[in-house]
Amino acid sequence: MLNIVKLTVVYPDNTKAVDKFTLHAGKEESVALAGENGAGKTTLMLAITGVLPIAEGSVQVDGITLEKKNLNDIRARTGLVFQNPDDQLFTASVYDDIAFGPRNYGLPEKQVAERVNQTLEELGITRLLGRSALKLSGGEKRLAAIAAVLSMNPSVLLFDEPTAFLDLKARRNLIRLLNKMPQTKLIASHDLLFLEEVCGRAVLMKNGTVFTEGAPADLFHDKKLMEDCGLEAI
């Protein structure tokens, strides 16, 4: 469960990247986040995980408020899948990348191995186990990046442009995969058709704040509304 109340994030040059953003995502709910480039989607996600400091407002994950003392807990419960999987896969092998999070949280090596194998099996990518992350295809990298986050057993998943770099088949596989995942999901993307298939609710973001929200089918097909938000209707 994710609860964001009047969240404001200000960059050092005083730009308000996120401005009084409020959102509630219930258990197992998938929420789409759409908005033009620079609307503040990525900044919002980095702020939810405590990577960027919050100027005002609050973030709660499973009832735990994001504070410095709770960072450990919040990051264990929140998995952020980055737009570019190359930013997320930074160790020599897929195994080490997936094991990175559980190891940081102090799990014994036996449990780490179990988590890695379990996650790879869930995603159907056990073949990648011994491979180097540098040698994977775009689709494989995306799945490995998702596995790296899932191995921490988060209850909230944040996806930043998950369909970027994917071909149609990999995109279809990702839709199937996301629809099976029980976690609360917040998915930022420009791919509105993808969002429509995966999410039950959509939030349109403009200038760092909520422009409007509703059912994806209603919002994404409303030409006037989408243009006002700086987007293009389906």
Partner: peptide, 11 residues
Amino acid sequence: RIYAAMKCRGY
């Protein structure tokens, strides 16, 4: 960005 990704996973 890589450092942010590391921090998100408990680094």
